[in-house]
Amino acid sequence: MKTAYVRKLLAPVVLSLFAVGWYEFSVIYLASNNQLALSSGDLAVYVIPQQFQGYLTATLWICYFVVFMGLAMFWYNLVNIVREEEGGRWEFGAIDLAMPLAIALELVAFFYLGNSLIGDNVAVRLLGYCAVLGCLMWFWYNSVKYVRVREVV
């Protein structure tokens, strides 16, 4: 595989992992160090709970955004690379575009209906989020592919 392809595919994945890592670092290390600053009486370092919670919430939003952006970039480049490798000749229709969305909606409906059963089970919920996210990425992949094919035609 060409090094340029590796760079194009690896960089957004690293970006997404960085976002997750940053959030986890904030939750684990910064929260505990904030408490340490309070217990040692260092009020110049300590951040009040409302503000700190605000930081964590914003970081979580940003984490979602960056992960989504990173994965979108990953899929976009994957489409481009495959297209380049195949010489740009694809046959592709609207059904391919709609299918991932339909599956994603099915999954959402499934989890919505099964909400009372799942409760606070984080592992199951995480699995569900991943599945829906995967479908949305698939949709993104297909939509880019669709546009590209139309351009070629």
Partner: peptide, 13 residues
Amino acid sequence: FSDSLSIVDASTL
């Protein structure tokens, strides 16, 4: 570090 730098602030993000 002990007197001028809060653990996080808006500039971190």
